[in-house]
Each structure stands twice: as C-alpha cells, then as structure tokens.
Write a protein that binds this DNA or RNA. Structure first.
Length: 424
RNA sequence: GUGAGCGUAGCUCAGCUGGUGGUAGCACCGGGUUGUGGCCUCGGAGGUCGUGGGUUCAAGUCCCAUCGCUCACCCCA
C-alpha cells in the first residue's frame, strides 16, 4: 500500500502551478500599487492567540483547529486564518512605531480540520491583507476597491456584498431586539436556529432554511440599530464605493464567522463554485489590537481564498501558463552529447533557458521534447556539425532554420548562439 | 459530526440479466520520415478490477465488512 497524502491536503502539481503563480503575481503587483508591504509570519502560534481573537464559541475554535501539545507541554495550533498572527506580530514587534498606519499583506497556508469538499480543504491558502491604524471609512472603501481590482485583473467576476455589524456601543441593543424577536416565534424556527438564538443570535440570519428565512423578513435589521457613528461610517462607505465605481449590494443579513468583526464586513461571492461561494471576505476589527494587549488601534482586513480563485480561473481559461524555454539542444551521438552537455551549461550561465535530452532518444523524440517544453529555438548538434563547425538553428515558431557557425574555440559557442537568438 | 454517490491502465472512463479484462480516449515509447516538433498513420508497453471475506461450477459484475475518494448538509476563504 503506497503512502497517500492526508485527507484534505493536496499537492499543487506542475500543470496547475502556472495559475497559482499568475494569481499571486497579479495580487502582489496590486498590493504594492496600494502601498502594502509583505509580512511573513509563523504557521504555528500559541493556541491562546486564536481562542482570544477568533472567539471561543466559534466553529473554527470549537471544532476545526489543528491543536496539539508540543514536546514542552504547551498547547500550540496551526493557524486557521491569517489576521490573528499578523496582529500578534504587529504588537510583538511594535510595528506601530514605523508609522501610524501600517499596510500589510501575507500569503500562505491555513489549516482547518473540516470535512473536505469542493472548494474546501484542510490545508488551504489565503492571501490576506490588513490595514492597521485608521478608522476612516475611505480606508474600508479603498481595501474593497483593491480586492475588486485584483479580481478584475485576474479576469474573474464576483459580486460584492457589504454590511455593518455595528460596534460595542450599538450591537448589544440590536442583539437584544433580535433575541426578543426570536423568542416570540421560537416554535417556528429550525433546531439550529433555536440553539443559536441564545448562543449566537446574529448567526440565525444566515440560516439556509427557507422556512426560517421567511420568518426573518420581518426581523429587526442591524442597520436600523447602528449608533450615529457607525451609521455615518456605513453611509460614507457606500457613498465612496459608488464614487469609485465599485458595484456592491447591501446584505443586512450577512454575518461573519469570526467574533472580532465590527462595523464594515464584506464578502466576494461567486455562484460558479458549487456551495463554497465566498472567494474572499473580510471586515473591520476596531477593538482587536487593544484586546490582544496592543495600543488602541483600529484595523480592517480581508482574505482571498487561493484554491477558489484557481478553480474559477481554470474553469474560465484553459490557457497554458507554464514557462517556456529559449533553446532546446538536440544532440545525436555520444560525442555530440558530451560537447553539448558542456555547451548547455555555458548557455545557462549566459542567462538563457536551455534544456537537452540525456537519455539518448531519437531525433524525432527530441524534437517532441523541445515542442513540449515550448522551446523558442532548437540547435541540432551531430557528428556532421562537429566536423563542419556549423549547426542548424531552428526557429520553432516559424519553422525556419539557418546555419550558425560554431567558432573553433569551444568557449565562444554559447555567446554566438545567444547573439543569434537574441537577434530574433 | 450527518447524508448520498463512486473506487477497473499514469489520467478520464466502457464493461448489459454473473460466463476468458477494453482494437476506448489522453499521456508514454517506437516506426512511417537512414537527422527535423505540433497534424496524420501504424505498432508497442502498461492491470493484485481499492482491500478482506461470503454466495456460486463460475464474481470486475451479487452480498457483507473495511479502507479511500467525491459531492452535499454544516461551516467558511
């Protein structure tokens, strides 16, 4: 029995890695355009970090974390999301002294022990972004506009839904109103909603049951309970999103799975991935830094799900994004192979992408390899070429080929070949 | 955690009411082209039919168990 990868853990194979690189490169380019800097944080953290930030009674913390005791007896966890670690690092390293506003992004694997399905793995990858140190609504808009632009430049479509969850001042009154509403019709609700009505009432609004949703059409809306500050903030977010021509829809029933969110929350949603429609999501978390022992610093961030982006992209385009090669060197016979092997290395030292066959395959086979590797040129080196000191250089796109002189001094071959290739 | 579906070549899959594993497609190797790719054509190699048990003269096919994968619920990126 051969050894298989763990359930929910997947290899990203050479054939698909081009999509990953394209998405990452596009995103990095845009992050930098918006003044974000990369930060790389550890994959393991003390368990306490996630319990305190994400929330003790969330699904993530209750049943999805890879948590274990290390050899020293301390409880550590493989990060289930990125924000907590970045905030920890921000406080840990006193990054607020670098400037009052920090714009950070990080890309890497996250781990959640869930039942795998389409678009949901146990190890998955996120690109996540945080802005720390500003509570202006325009920052919320800027961040959403950036997420929007990344999708556009990758060539994907999604809809942006936004909501406001209020703040410590106004959310309690909404929670109370909602709970009263739920109590009044508790017997009409599904089992899950009954349970949630006391443990996490906001969550019921997200219920999938049509019967429950019918009830909730008349439920109190968080947007009616926002305090003046939150209300103004949300109004400004909507207004500036429109000014920047970012299309959005308000979804007053949107709830997020992490407890730390305040005010603006948003999701980027697609209908083309089956049941896992969120390809990106985030929101504001104004109390979080303080809560973790840092200064009173507001923050906002979001994460994009790499696997989901890759899936969308490969559904859309079948184009091959793999790397190409400058030259494939065909050798015929052992003597040519030996010379060619040294020449190959010289070509590479000059900065050319170059490959050859090492298995003594036929001419036809070597041409096929050149084609498969997307070589721009092929140089053919056999007994004749070695004696005549000239070799055919074939342009694989046009099919044309010309003889290039091979200088008697072996060392000069590579640069003369490079010159020929670069001329084209 | 709950439910459903599926495990046959490296990949995607045929295989009817049990009766000798498919000239199947893609990929791979070779020939057609004594030294020129993509297209075409001919040939070749490649399998403990997931595993274990049961029924039967006979099991890829039926039954049971087990492992694995997938999708959905839930949750979320």
């Amino acid at each position: 029995m051969s050894i298989k990868a763990l359930k929910g853990f997947k290899d990203i194979l050479p054939d698909e890695v081009g999509h990953w690189q394209f998405i990452e490169q596009t995103a990095r380019k845009i992050f930098h355009r918006y003044g974000f800097e990369e930060i790389r944080v550890p994959i393991l953290e003390k368990t306490e970090l996630f319990v305190r930030t994400i929330g003790e009674s969330t699904d993530i913390v209750e049943k999805e974390m890879y948590t274990f005791v290390d050899r020293n007896g301390s409880s550590i966890t493989m990060r289930p999301e990125g924000t907590a670690s970045v905030i920890r690092s921000y406080i840990d390293n006193g990054l607020y002294v670098r400037g009052s506003v920090q714009r950070l992004y990080t890309i890497g694997p996250m781990f959640r022990h869930e039942r795998p399905q389409k678009g949901r793995l146990r190890q998955f990858h996120q690109m996540s972004v945080e802005v720390l140190g500003s509570n202006r609504a325009t920052i919320d808009t800027e961040v959403m506009a950036m997420a929007w632009q990344i999708l556009q430049e990758i060539g994907l479509q999604a809809s942006l839904e936004i909501n406001s969850l209020g703040c410590a001042a106004c959310r309690p009154s909404f929670k109370e109103a909602l709970q009263t509403f739920l109590q009044e019709r508790i017997q009409h609700l599904c089992e899950d909603c009954r349970r949630r009505s006391s443990s996490n009432p906001l969550r019921v609004l997200d219920c999938k049951s049509e019967h429950c949703q019918a009830q909730y059409t008349s439920a109190p809306s968080i947007l009616d309970h926002l305090c003046e500050g939150c209300s103004q903030h949300f109004a400004e977010v909507k207004q500036t999103l429109s000014q920047l021509d970012v299309p959005f829809a308000v979804n007053a029933k949107m709830v997020r799975g992490l407890d730390y969110y305040t005010r603006t929350t948003f999701e980027l949603i697609t209908t083309e991935l089956g049941s896992q429609g969120a390809i990106g999501a985030g929101g504001r978390y104004d109390g979080l830094v303080r809560q973790l022992g840092g200064p009173e610093v507001p923050g906002i961030g979001f994460a994009l799900g790499m696997e989901r982006l890759v899936m969308l992209l490969s559904q859309k385009s079948r184009q091959d994004l793999g790397p190409s090669l400058d030259l494939f060197l065909i050798t015929l016979g052992e003597k040519a192979y030996e010379k060619g092997f040294v020449l190959l290395q010289k070509l590479r030292a000059l900065g050319l992408g170059a490959m050859m066959d090492h298995e003594g395959r036929s001419m036809k086979n070597q041409m096929k390899q050149a084609d498969k590797q997307k070589a721009d040129f092929v140089l053919i080196l056999g007994e004749n070429e070695l004696t005549n000191l000239e070799a055919p250089l074939k342009d694989m796109r046009s099919g044309e080929q010309e003889l290039v002189e091979l200088p008697p001094a072996f060392e000069d071959w590579a640069s003369s070949i490079k010159t020929k290739i670069r001329q084209k």
